[in-house]
Design a protein around this nucleic acid. Structure first.
Lengths: 190, 190
DNA sequence: TCCGTACACTTTGATTCCGAACGACACCCG
DNA sequence: CGGGTGTCGTTCGGAATCAAAGTGTACGGA
């Protein structure tokens, strides 16, 4: 019982749950659908083009970033791909093991690590990307090009809002309270 | 160097990379921004309201689904939350350990497992959800209510397209070829 | 030159995640 | 009522995930 139908119903149920609480329905539906769409698109892409190339979503994104930007420092790749540095370390090592990516150290700054595609990685992207773009077109088939532009623009507003005011908002919400440790994560050596 | 600025530039670089290949830019930007927005929103929510309650995004989604739908079979919860059955097993067990969820077996069908919130889980949701909804409003602050509705509607078209034609499309793309095993995953016992 | 601070990547620990294999149960049909 | 067929949740293997701790390099000032 997938998708859009349940949203409306879930909203009603949630509203009932919350009684008189002033629920922001439109905003809730928008956010919920962003995640529904993202997950549906990702799953479709993984199970169509990516699966055949034996790439995960993340692996593809990393390859794509390095491909279009050329040899890059890992921190920029992580930023652009939307991963933590720690995750990128693992992913790029997997990619290196598979011979798709090369890791080299910066000639003058020993702290930096540069990522670049191997010939094999380059060849793979040249083959996979067109198919990927075809599926992007497929999933947006019900929208006109103009609607796609509008959608991108609207989503950009959301991204900007979080990027420009998210930090400040989080601080305000915490209001001096302890930053709340995560359940997982490394513990002190002691 | 975040976000929207790099998209335009990345597109140009990608177009150059692909030479004369007919690149669907608008569709590409739309899909890319869906994921950018989803990840930005998720991160903001995790680091604001969820962190304090010591919940991961996934844990919250599962609680939310069970909360609004009431006691439910795990397969429905997995579907609604957008997870595989296997993942839900692990997540619901974590939630059970923390005393937020109850797992009971179906009275007449021994295969089914039913999930429901404990009193503690119920109390937690009553406390966390309003804050969550506030942040949904925050991230969409630059949009009017009408734009939110439009956004939700547009995204719904994407979800519907994948849900209604994705399977068929994937089959057409494979065209009889072997379904391509995943690198990971359980191996036969032999 | 030595020191302290700042930065950049890696390691670590606890989870989450997927999909295929698996085992238990349900149901149809003879 | 016994077997085949199918459905459900669970287990498993490999990978991805984050945040914080740790390691190592860079660089400015004393």
């Amino acid at each position: 019982m997938p998708g859009h139908r349940s949203i409306a119903e879930a909203e009603k149920l949630a509203a009932a749950k919350l009684g008189g609480f002033p629920l922001r329905r439109d905003q809730m539906a928008a956010v919920a659908n962003i995640h529904r769409a993202a997950s549906a698109v990702r799953q479709h892409l993984e199970n169509s083009v990516l699966r055949g190339a034996d790439l995960t979503w993340t692996a593809f994104v990393v390859l794509w970033v390095v491909w279009v930007w050329g040899e890059s420092e890992t921190r920029h790749v992580a930023e652009e791909a939307g991963l933590s540095k720690g995750t990128l370390t693992g992913v790029s090592r997997t990619l290196e093991r598979r011979g798709l990516i090369r890791r080299s150290s910066h000639p003058s700054d020993g702290r930096l690590v540069l990522l670049s595609l191997t010939d094999e990685g380059e060849a793979l992207m040249r083959q996979v990307f067109p198919a990927f773009n075809d599926e992007e077109a497929f999933v947006t088939e019900r929208l006109t090009a103009g609607e796609c532009r509008g959608l991108a623009e609207t989503l950009r507003q959301v991204v900007l809002q979080v990027e420009e005011h998210g930090e400040e908002r989080r601080l305000a919400l915490l209001d001096g309270a302890a930053p709340a440790r995560r359940r997982s994560g490394r513990r002190p050596k002691s």
